[in-house]
Amino acid sequence: MVRQKEWAVYKGDKFLFIGSTNECAARLGVKNETVRYYSTPTYWRKLEKRNNWDNSLIVVDLSELDLID
């Protein structure tokens, strides 16, 4: 069985929820690819240009964080 990534979803700096790719996509009403896109450097550069972080969806891949050494 393939283990899905866990994502943390924020709207601006407000934490919304944690879930797998499928769970996040279902709760946000988007495709799985869109959830992954929200975590890419390309999307983050787009947000920087807009300069409006307060109303932006931000998705963080929890597997990329160094929580335990």
Score class of each variant (00 low, 15 high):
A25S: 04
T34F: 02
W44H: 12
E64I: 05
A25G: 04
R27S: 05
M1T: 10
E33W: 06
Y38Q: 01
C24M: 01
C24R: 01
A25Y: 01
E6I: 11
F17N: 04
V9M: 04
N32D: 13
T34L: 05
I18V: 13
D13C: 02
L57Y: 10
N51E: 15
W53V: 06
W44G: 03
S63N: 11
R3N: 12
G29A: 06
K49M: 14
S39N: 08
V60W: 05
R36A: 07
I18H: 07
M1D: 13
N22G: 08
V30S: 00
D54N: 15
M1A: 13
Y43R: 05
L65Q: 12
L28V: 02
A26Y: 11
A25F: 03
Y38M: 10
D66H: 13
E48M: 14
F15G: 03
Y38G: 00
E48S: 12
T40I: 07
E23W: 03
L65I: 15
K14Y: 02
F17H: 01
D66S: 11
K14L: 09
D66E: 11
G29W: 11
W44V: 08
L62H: 04
R27Q: 11
Y10R: 00
A8R: 05
K46R: 14
T42H: 12
A26E: 15
E23L: 04
I68M: 10
L65D: 01
I58A: 07
L28K: 02
V2C: 06
A8S: 09
E64M: 09
S56I: 10
E23D: 12
R36H: 04
A25V: 00
L16H: 02
E23K: 11
K14R: 11
K5P: 05
M1I: 10
K31M: 08
E48C: 14
A26H: 10
E6M: 10
Y37K: 09
V35A: 01
G19M: 03
L28N: 01
E23A: 12
E48K: 15
V35N: 00
G12N: 06
K14N: 05
V60Q: 05
A8Q: 00
Y10L: 07
T42A: 12
L62P: 03
R27Y: 06
D69K: 11
V30P: 01
M1Q: 14
P41C: 02
S63Y: 14
D13E: 15
N22R: 09
N52F: 11
E33H: 08
Y43F: 11
F17Y: 06
R50K: 15
L28F: 02
D61L: 04
V59L: 02
V60F: 03
T21K: 06
Y10H: 07
V30A: 03
